[in-house]
Nucleic acid binder design. Structure first.
Lengths: 264, 264
DNA sequence: TTGCTCCTCACGTCACGTGAGGTGGC
DNA sequence: TTGCTCCTCACGTCACGTGAGGTGGC
């Protein structure tokens, strides 16, 4: 049995791992050497531990986190499946996320970092029906979609304009934020008033994932001219999924600012 | 002008960043406050710094690293383009990498972590023509492809078998490793002998990116039976890109082991 | 006086890689 | 005796988030 023990370097070569990684797995309790010399601290592994070490190597090559691998090594047969399915979902989400970022980068390369097309306007107040919700930023799309559907259903055939999303400007992109969707309707009981007033506005053409580009342009423009946002941003979905592909969506973004005279 | 200075909290709200991030960008020299109160250490920003802060926020949302953003803020117009193209390439590479991992995970979910189909064999020695190169693991595919093409060209119509890749087993997946491709030919001047002997062998069916699964199975099998690899691994490309789609590739992997009698 | 804002440490994240400085075994 | 292997710290990575503990301004 003693013959069966190998040093850490030899074991690392057998398992195609590094010595440093094996020491790390020892510290983390993932894979303990079969024997540690009390005097020297030398680690010795049994050859039959190579199976576990190989499994660690395979799963790490697939980017499975060490705590998940720990569960897999517990020999619970369901743990393997859970780990693999979890990793599949994680990888799929990471790919989707990066594909969205890539699309935005491609757009910035093609069109340049946008600057100018900002206009000042005086928005009229409107009567609207409102659907509200809260959403984490990555869930914003579906949540707003549902709000739009709800509000449209409530408005029925009294719809008098395209949906308007209302978003806090100081939402920090991290936590849940409150969102609202307003549908313009003829004045009637149950409707609310969406305040009017002076705004800075820009038009965004393209998928909703690239809306941050438009906010960047709009806010840069504002600050360069000494304006300060006075409230929530609004997005008017002039052309959306009902009638176009993402590249053709048209969204008008407005941010309320102080009245022209008050400014200087 | 003094009116123009805002506290860090207010500035953070204007730029949709956190106070912590602004302090971090100050420390890193990315975005210095226009004024720091000597007595209290309070940071004050000019409103017209909001443009730079917004740009940092946009680029960070695209996962551009801070050192690259520093270059962008240098106002070199080419720097923006370099940064965006660099980020595009980085994102594309990350997506490709994860897609490969995902395919491997999917396969493991579908087929289970493989175990058994390992056989012992006694390989004959062969006369071969050899092409050699070194490759980082992520460049392995194209490099081996070129070696195969070179070796096949050298062999001409004397080809007497499918290509055989030869790989060190202690390549640590990190650095450059030497690779060789051997093409069996009729004995002739200029040919080398590829040694024969006892091996453990398994068949891998599917894309080359999933070959690590087969190595895991093969090595686990070996170690569970007390065998030790005695040299380099070989891959016989029985069915490859010339005649099939990746899912249909057939590869025979062998690892030399000690002779049967020597083992116990 | 009460909140709110701001400050500076210090630590944690994730899975190691990279030295520094020293010892053990054939 | 010479290399080679092995050991334990300690630090760096990347861009922050999360407290702890304390102070300044209306």
């Amino acid at each position: 049995v003693d013959e069966d023990l190998v040093s850490i370097g030899r074991f690392a070569r057998l398992c195609r791992l590094t010595v440093k990684r094996l020491r790390h797995y020892d510290e983390q309790g993932l894979l303990r050497p079969a024997h540690v010399d009390a005097a020297t601290g030398y680690r010795y592994y049994r050859r039959d531990q190579a199976g576990e070490a190989l499994t660690i190597g395979l799963l790490r090559a697939l980017d499975v986190p060490l705590p998940v691998i720990t569960e897999v090594l517990s020999r619970d047969p369901e743990a393997v499946d859970r780990a693999l399915r979890g990793q599949r979902d994680r990888l799929a989400a990471e790919i989707r996320h990066r594909e969205r970022l890539l699309a935005t980068v491609q757009r910035l390369i093609a069109d340049g970092v946008p600057g100018a097309e900002v206009t000042l306007a005086d928005e009229p107040a409107r009567q609207v029906l409102v659907a509200r919700a809260t959403a984490a930023p990555e869930r914003l799309g579906p949540v707003v979609g549902r709000c739009i559907a709800d509000a449209l259903a409530a408005a029925g055939d009294r719809v008098a304009g395209c949906p308007i999303g209302v978003y806090p400007l100081d939402g920090l992109e991290t936590a849940e934020m409150p969102v609202a969707v307003a549908i313009p309707v003829a004045a009637e009981p149950g409707s609310e008033t969406l305040a009017g007033g002076p705004v800075a506005a820009t038009i965004h053409i393209g998928a909703y994932e690239q809306v941050p580009i438009a906010y960047h342009a709009l806010l840069s423009w504002l600050y360069a001219r000494g304006h300060t946002p006075l409230g929530e941003a609004r997005e008017e979905y002039l052309v959306g999924p009902a009638t176009a592909e993402p590249d053709g969506y048209v969204t008008r973004i407005t941010i309320p600012i102080e009245a022209e005279g008050a400014h200087d």
